[in-house]
Amino acid sequence: MTPELSRFDPLRRILCFDDFDRGFCGWAQHQGNYEGSLDTVLPGYAQMQAPMLSTLPNWDFGSHGGIDGTYVLKIQTLPQPGARSSAVKRLTFREAGPVRLEFYFTFKPEATEAKLSETDVRAFGLLFDLQSGDATPNGERVMPHLRFLNARDGEHVQKWQFKRAVEQASTISAKTATHDHMADSGWEDLPGGAQRLCYNEIATKVNWHYGRVDLDLREMRVMGFRINDRVHDMRGFAEMRMPAWRNLWCMLNILFFVETDVAKRAWCAIDSVCISAE
């Protein structure tokens, strides 16, 4: 195993190993659904910004860099309270079995003030957008959502949450619908999900955190969730579930997102992602 892969614990078959020193690796700006005009995109999606290849440069000590190499994937919001951005990787699956997502992440507000700013980022999150195969009886679209609610209204909350509540879908046309599933509503606390992450001591220093999510695509369920040294108990977790949509068979999408709580840009960075399967 190479040094780059040895910091992961992949399942037998590696589907993707995305080291952003090799480019964007298929992580794209999230585009909300539309028809006829971009005016039909929901506001929650219209605000989303393009991901960047970043050295995490800072005004006070220069480029931070990644775990190794120069570049990481950076996702940044608009400077408006509640603004959210995400990046997505769009796959389909071949075997409805175990899939493991592993990643290293960090988040910070834009360092426009010389103060700690630890309560400026509202949330960092990830989600899967899954749908059963077209031959599966009673097909479902299943969207496991997890977010780290870092802060709200100046309180440093620091806890993991999940979302099973299905946001109201809007019909754009006979062929296209849309729903703002990442919206800041309907989130529930993951039991035992309080976790204090290393934030460091000024607004520009970052530390990388390890994350792992285990899926079982046969049951369309999350089986495991680990952040650094904490293996979270997922017995109280629930996925967002709905009847299958018309064009999404075998979908295996993965998204990372970040949300700001104040009128300041928030960003998250990902340095390498490993997706593996049995």
Binding site: M52, L53, T70, Q76
Partner: peptide, 8 residues
Amino acid sequence: TEPQEVGW
């Protein structure tokens, strides 16, 4: 426009 990091 929003800041774009393009050093690469």
